[in-house]
Design a protein around this nucleic acid. Sequence first.
DNA 1: CGCTTCGTTGAAACACGTCAATAAGCGTGG
DNA 2: CCACGCTTATTGACGTGTTTCAACGAAGCG
Lengths: 239, 239
Amino acid sequence: MRQDVHVADVPVLCVSCEARHRGVCGALEPAQLLALAKVSHKQNMSEGTELAGDATRADTYSNVLSGVVKLTKSLSDGRQQIVGLQFAPDFLGRPFKSENEMSASAATDVSLCSFPKSAVDRMLRESPGLEHRLLEQTLKELDEARLWMVTLGRKTAPEKVASFLLLIARNSNPTAARDAAAAFDLPLTRADIADFLGLTIETVSRQLTRLRADRVIRIENNRHVTVDSLARLAARSGD
Amino acid sequence: MRQDVHVADVPVLCVSCEARHRGVCGALEPAQLLALAKVSHKQNMSEGTELAGDATRADTYSNVLSGVVKLTKSLSDGRQQIVGLQFAPDFLGRPFKSENEMSASAATDVSLCSFPKSAVDRMLRESPGLEHRLLEQTLKELDEARLWMVTLGRKTAPEKVASFLLLIARNSNPTAARDAAAAFDLPLTRADIADFLGLTIETVSRQLTRLRADRVIRIENNRHVTVDSLARLAARSGD
DNA sequence: CGCTTCGTTGAAACACGTCAATAAGCGTGG
DNA sequence: CCACGCTTATTGACGTGTTTCAACGAAGCG
């Protein structure tokens, strides 16, 4: 049985919030949670909304409550690379810097819980537990980023697409067995997938049809993917 | 004037150590530094030494005092990707995990200051300042990793090689002006550069000779590089 | 029902990889 | 100091996976 704080102590906003358990808010004392809830607000953004621009002033942090946020970096001539995907209950924002160094936008419809940067920064100074949670998430993201660097640098197009599908499959059902089946909606358009994998739209499309022709996946309505054997998909992911 | 702790309070080992100023040790109280120094030891490793294997037990952390450490990940068929380079005074090791998830090896001759994992983990729990430093370094590494993802995913071979040279140039002289000249030794072999850029040795070599033919760089003894104008090099790096 | 966006498919171009030979650097020992 | 062998780097010719360019199809939306 989980020892939970008495519900009466928990702000309404936070009662059923995932971030209070698995996210950074879990590190806060009831009093702190209350203080933070007073200045935070939930907001729903629709697909495509720009949440933060590259090199713009960042004055809020957020928790992702649902949906997927993509972190993007661009070269001057317009080439883009998605450098991270944030799922619930990930924390969004770069502590200790006042400028964003990448742009964040809603890959799907998302709902966020946003806080003024200053309030969180203050708590960060007062509450080591919060900083600890943040360190753990940051280390997790660093691990993921480095893992993806292998995909970007050393995998072939077929392997890249398989790796991407596996990533989404695992994220949409973290507890699924290694050799189970899976079904999920792709949170990204073909263009986004291409930007995430360092490929072109056309190559992504070709690899998807190839996986479909080989009966590794089925696709309905362009977005819904069914995988009968994750193991068979994993066998094509290179690692 | 820097307010420094009286030298008498500082362990001999640490007196002239860069990590005490710019590295994580700067967060420690004199007493903690002393305690840590008792269980730490300096060691010199020659080029090529394996410092930590993928999926092996990690029981020490280290500070890089000099030289360059490369962090590598491999696919099952032997393809390799360097996912990070650590320079002095970077901290080496993955807190909160007992297994390494990548291999670390000495790209050049390196000297390290190593500590038992348990001792640092204890201090981490007691000293929020240490965890803060670690969070800042981790965030810095995450920024760098994501920046490099753009290089891996979206840049051409000529741009990749130019980006690499810029990275090394900036790291060997962080204060150099944007349009200054630079001269440095490459800390990596061509094979390592290829593994860092997601290219083959041959392509790296060709791009280097092309930069040389275009008089952007000069190379002596395969390792020593001279750049007359960093701006001209940067113009070829894509961003 | 047309318009627009998104995805698929094909043919051709090209950047990078592969394979193979040569050259250069470097430590070792005569 | 040069000869030798070994490793590392360069260069060339060729092959191919991915991109590019272009046309077409499908789905969403006013």
